[in-house]
Amino acid sequence: MEDDTGAAWRNLPQRPMVAPPDFWTLPEGRRARGHLMGRQYGGSGDNLRNLVPLWAIANRDVMKGVEMDVAGVIKEGGQEVKYEVLAIYDGKKSGVPKSIHIEAHGMLGLNVDCLVMNNNEPKEKVNLSVVPVAWDGEMRRVDFREMIDVDSWSSPTPVEVWLGIEEWAGGGLPGDFKEFVDLYGDGIVRGHLYVPHPCGAEPLIDFMKRGRESLRSVAHHYLGDSRSPRFDVDSVIPWGYSDWDGDQCCLVPRGKEAWDILVEFRQFGCVRLYQGCFSTFISGVLSGTAAPPGWPGSGPLWKALDRSPLV
């Protein structure tokens, strides 16, 4: 495509760089050559297939922020990530996209799905959550709604509620865990595993606080047990309780962005670490193929808590 200012391949007057189609139609000083695959990932600045015209504020203040966040996860957490970017046009004969759709899904819980709006408005981005998805340890897409074929809660947890939980937890929690809890919290998995909801009968943050203090009171027994891995009680995030034998399930951080599952086996007097993301663990419980020892491998996949205020 060419515009009325000359060929798309013409050099910028200031620097020897190629310009994408219709780049020159945006105001000087407020335009940018947007990289679909960012330079952080080795994206080319000389290949037109990787360049689109963007408003500078959308490129600098929004798209770059998403790219840097994802790049940080890859660099610091050792997380394998599937990254896709799509330029969306409004049907007019213009090379300027109306938005950029970015998806990034990692094997350890990273879940980014957003639209960067290509306009001159500051920091305009739309986070999408049409179908909550996650990735298990083998990079297979996990759709919780396909695994649990029953009606889930339809209203997402208010952002400020999650922010309060994550502030107490000391940082962001894994996306696949939050998606599952939004859909199926305040319910019973496999007839025995209670998973609270942020707005449920016992709010998730109250459950987390109570569970951590309970674990703290007996942690010295586990830390002195040769069967149990070392762990920091203050970094443990309780999220589930089995009424089959009193076992408690917790998130524990592994590195900056990776998470494992710690199960407190109260009947066995030890704890066990399940490496991998939340999706891998809960998928094993749901399928019955990788349930912790002593847990039932059958029972209803999910049932809403009778006293839940979400019903």
Score class of each variant (00 low, 15 high):
Glu166Met: 08
Phe180Asp: 01
Ser129Leu: 14
Leu108Gln: 10
Pro122Leu: 13
Gly171Arg: 04
Gly172Lys: 14
Lys125Gln: 15
Asp113Asn: 10
Leu183Ala: 06
Met147Thr: 06
Lys125Thr: 13
Arg141Leu: 15
Asp113Gln: 03
Glu167Leu: 05
Ser155Trp: 07
Val130His: 13
Met117Pro: 03
Glu138Gln: 15
Val133Arg: 15
Asp176His: 05
Leu163Gln: 09
Val112Pro: 00
Val142Arg: 14
Gly191Val: 00
Glu124Ile: 12
Leu115Cys: 08
Leu163Cys: 02
Glu160Thr: 05
Asp143Cys: 13
Gly170Trp: 05
Glu146Leu: 11
Gly171Lys: 03
Tyr184Phe: 15
Leu163Glu: 07
Val161Met: 07
Gly137Pro: 05
Trp162Phe: 03
Trp135Arg: 15
Asp149Glu: 11
Phe177Leu: 12
Gly164Arg: 14
Gly137Phe: 08
Ile148Trp: 04
Lys125Ala: 13
Gly137Ile: 11
Asp143His: 13
Asp149Thr: 12
Gly175Pro: 00
Val126Thr: 03
Gly185Leu: 07
Val131Thr: 13
Ser152Gly: 09
Glu138Tyr: 15
Glu124Phe: 12
Pro156Gln: 06
Val159His: 11
Phe144Thr: 00
Leu110Lys: 05
Leu108Lys: 10
Leu163Ser: 09
Val150Trp: 08
Val181Ile: 08
Trp153Leu: 10
Lys125Leu: 14
Val181Ser: 08
Gly187Met: 00
Ile165Pro: 00
Val161Ser: 04
Asn120Phe: 13
Lys125His: 07
Leu108Ile: 02
Asn118Val: 08
Glu124Lys: 15
Val112Asp: 00
His105Ser: 10
Met107Thr: 14
Pro156Ser: 04
Met147Val: 13
Cys114His: 05
Tyr194Cys: 01
Trp153Pro: 01
Ile148Cys: 04
Gly137His: 09
Leu183Gly: 05
Asn111Glu: 12
Leu108Glu: 07
Gly170Ala: 07
Asp149Ser: 12
Leu110Met: 09
Leu110Ile: 03
Glu146Asn: 11
Val150Asp: 09
Val181Lys: 00
Glu121Met: 12
Tyr194Pro: 03
Arg140Asp: 00
Asn119Leu: 02
Leu128Ala: 05
Glu167His: 11
Val195Arg: 03
Glu166Pro: 02
Val133Tyr: 10
Val150Ser: 13
Asp176Tyr: 02
Val116Phe: 09
Ile165Tyr: 00
Trp162Asn: 08
Glu121Trp: 11
Leu183His: 05
Pro122Gly: 10
Ser152His: 14
Lys123Asn: 14
Phe144Cys: 00
Val116Ser: 11
Val116Leu: 12
